[in-house]
Design a protein around this nucleic acid. Structure first.
Lengths: 207, 207, 207, 207
DNA sequence: CTATAAGCGAGACGGTACGTCCCGTCTTAGA
DNA sequence: TCTAAGACGGGACGTACCGTCTCGCTTATAG
């Protein structure tokens, strides 16, 4: 999925119809996303409210509601770029290294930056609002899973992984624990954890 | 961990001191828990509010706040029993079967009953309120992890599992994906999933 | 007062300067007034908003604000014609008949047509916005009072009315109750009321 | 009508049912009415908003909406007392003096105090909201008309006024012009005006 | 017979206020 | 003395219009 595709719904292709009279103000768009990110960094997801974003961005509330359905959508867009642009798709020829790069980066982003609080908040909101859940899966999860699939398939093709591997199951086994630690915070979430997870899954735990 | 310990903070030991002028009304206690469970079943976690619980239970709001810190605590207590009483600690002599029993039951409870919505809602709330997070880990996670630890240790002792196994890591690898599916709902959560997960982790994914 | 004078502020004299590159579109002008009148008829003064007028007239909001200061001005212009064109200046030789014609017609227009709701709404708005108040007195009240003054003066000249009559006071005594009933709606507003009012004022209420 | 009757809807008879658990806070009640009156005095009716009242009174908005339907109702209650407590019911034996007292006081209150702006604003709002109109007639108009009726009837009984007098019509003729001047503000509203009005109506305007 | 300066439709924008919901605390009458 | 009922201060929600603004198209003189 091309990263530009992510905004199709809220920011329709501009070149297609030049006759829109007054188009979306890019200045606002950015001000809002920036305000949302700042608030998140300062006060965490709970400290973000549509009114706070509007006031921080120097914008009317209606301008936010004109383009986004709720604060979750704003936060989602504010972090989609950060989370997905950094998405590496390494190809070192070794599946363990590739997965380590990818999941290590995910663990670090979630564990040490404000993106962790942002995405945890979004998952929280998704439990209440199915539309947020849908959008979250689409924007935050789908492309990561697709990338992981590519990596694993290459591993299979190279004969590193079992040919009968269930890709979805393997991805759940790799990503699940990372999100689990993000949400439960029972133990730290860092690169080492990701690496150890991969090692363990590849080798198996049987004696 | 003694199960009674779980309520120490919110439900001070009633038997301990008979000299309280008037002690907690068991009728209220039950009515509130029942009301919470009913509302959860009917409207999901989002449809539960302290006011709704109070009105449904025929109880003043204050009576709820006297004994619990917030609605999350109520829901937690309402489901702790259900989730933890069913906690099996099988000992069939085969670690794969034992884990399958335990995680299969977890997957089924989370995937098909209202407990799924309840616990997902609690995790959501935990993202905002650290106290809820703490209590959730204590009441909902800790004893399960302890049980899993016992199972895995037996497997090691019997020579079924690698002796250098990192128990915490293995438990994350087993439970993480289940909670991940509960919260993301990208694919169904059932016994088969749990079994497949265990199989995959035990055997590893290397060719 | 020449009726054309009434629009001087909002509708600058078109004939005066032919050198404007592009002059006011008469089509728009009419469409806006018509839309305002329709909305008023359908939903009353409260249902009229600048946005509703614009959308109904198929016109941009700016086109309205280019020519009028606020919705009150639009409504005022839409009804000034109707209210003032019908302004009779009868001269039957009998002041009671003359007043009866004039005030009877006023009572009927206010009491039974949408002009009642329109003018009531305008007075309402005038309480908040002094500019509307000013314009309202100028467009809706002044010419009517002038006409009444003429009628009464003729009555004095003919010896029908007391020569020391305070014209302004008499006009207030005649018109006040009509507007009062329009705004309070405690009793119906019709021709009979106007006639009775005149009779009573002329004869006095002393035994 | 007993003045206490006026609050029946918003302030139900307390003695009737002693079983209300927590009753309306009189402190709030007063704080809100005071805040409303202050705001009105400072900024006029247009400067009053429910949010401003709430913030000035140090009260949640909901506390206002719990007891009143809209800001008009609050303002109405805030001024009902002032307007109606001052309602004189003189009995000097001379109907002209009695009416002069009563209408003079009305003219002065409306013309020189903030009650004028308040009542004008209420009439304005009544044009949009029929419920306000209804309440306004009931609280602000009815008792005044009743009092005037009493005065006039005494005049008839004493032989000062025509025995066939239409009381409602006479009251409209007396009060209408006063409200008319309040709302149009084309000429000042003072005691002299009220007196002159009465004189003119009593004597009639015929030569 | 252009060219150019409005007028125009569309509607985004910063604001203000609305009326609603629920939170967690506080108050009160009565069991 | 504790409970139910529910009022309270507070804060965010999402909506409706306000009056201003910007855009790209259209149109009617003025040069």
């Amino acid at each position: 999925m091309a990263p530009d595709d992510l905004y199709n719904e809220t920011q329709p292709d501009v070149s297609q119809k030049a006759a829109d009279c007054r188009r979306r103000s890019e200045r606002c768009h950015q001000a809002i996303l920036t305000a949302a990110a700042e608030l998140l960094e300062e006060k965490g997801y709970g400290g973000v409210s549509v009114e706070a974003i509007a006031s921080r961005a120097g914008v009317g509330k209606q301008t936010i509601y004109r383009w986004w359905a709720c604060k979750a959508s704003v936060v989602m867009e504010a972090y989609a770029k950060q989370v997905n642009q950094n998405l590496p798709l390494p190809d070192t020829g070794c599946v363990k290294t590739d997965l380590g790069d990818m999941l290590g980066q995910l663990a670090v982003v979630l564990g040490t930056t404000s993106a962790g609080s942002a995405l945890a908040g979004l998952i929280a909101e998704a439990q209440t609002d199915p539309h947020v859940a849908q959008e979250f899966r689409h924007q935050m999860i789908a492309c990561r899973r697709a990338a992981a699939q590519t990596l694993l398939q290459r591993g299979i093709d190279r004969g590193e992984l079992r040919p009968d591997l269930d890709l979805d199951l393997a991805i759940d086994a790799l990503c699940g624990p990372i999100w689990y630690r993000l949400l439960l915070r029972h133990t730290p979430l860092d690169r080492e954890f990701a690496i150890a997870l991969i090692d363990q899954l590849m080798a198996g735990i049987t004696a």
